[in-house]
Design a binder for these strands. Structure first.
Lengths: 107, 107
DNA sequence: ATAGATACCTCGCCTGTCAAGGTATATTTT
DNA sequence: AAAATATACCTTGACAGGCGAGGTATCTAT
């Protein structure tokens, strides 16, 4: 990974919610999609991802269910809740604001 | 403060270096300037600021000296080093990159 | 006198990241 | 047939940065 994780911090949950806003997904796939979209420059580490899921679940922003794969490894799917969508919009707004503010300080 | 500190994290050092890139300064003033520039929406907490100074000093990115105030509270001034300027440019580049990447993920 | 602004500092908690370890199944290579 | 790789999940414990809470000292305004 070439992006310092401290620059990512605070956006992890939002990035996961963004992914789930399109369609239900599961950990492994979310990570693959992020890597694909960023040309492997950004990656959510396993442990980071799963601890984020626990957090999001606890806050009621996502719900979860096991996939019914009949072959291959089992998958735990995540689904964004209404509350999750609201939070996602809020997070995006916060990010826009933070971005503008940081930019204004780095002349 | 209205900006989540996790969105700020990773930029704290860069913001301080940005301030010092213009002119030598001291903790209290740096904070005041940040608040002025961001309409008090962003603030570096005392403890955050001073722990950042220790870090920057340790890494040789800033040097420090006591002001010669004859009245008022003493001031510890900080000066950015050449290495600090290099790091600052690097940090800004990293930020531009991270920003673009996060934006691309939040559709 | 008291309050508030200026100016510095430390200690210890909290939270998010992640290295390191683990489990299990399916496919591909040797 | 065995080994390697990919898929897919998980936990534990260490670490680092932010910051609440506490402290010190000086000057100014009420």
């Amino acid at each position: 990974m070439s992006i310092a994780s401290d620059l990512l911090r605070g956006n992890t949950d939002t990035i996961i919610l963004a992914s789930l806003a399109n369609h239900d997904s599961y950990g492994y796939l979310i990570n693959k999609e992020i890597m694909a979209k960023t040309d492997s420059q950004m990656e959510l580490k396993d442990a980071t991802l799963y601890s984020a899921f626990r957090r999001l679940e606890k806050e009621g922003l996502v719900s979860t269910y096991w996939g019914d794969e009949e072959v291959g490894a089992r998958r735990r799917y995540y689904s964004i809740t209404d509350k999750g969508r609201e939070q996602y919009e809020q997070n995006k707004a916060d990010w826009q604001k933070a971005k503008a503010m940081i930019d204004s300080l780095l002349v």
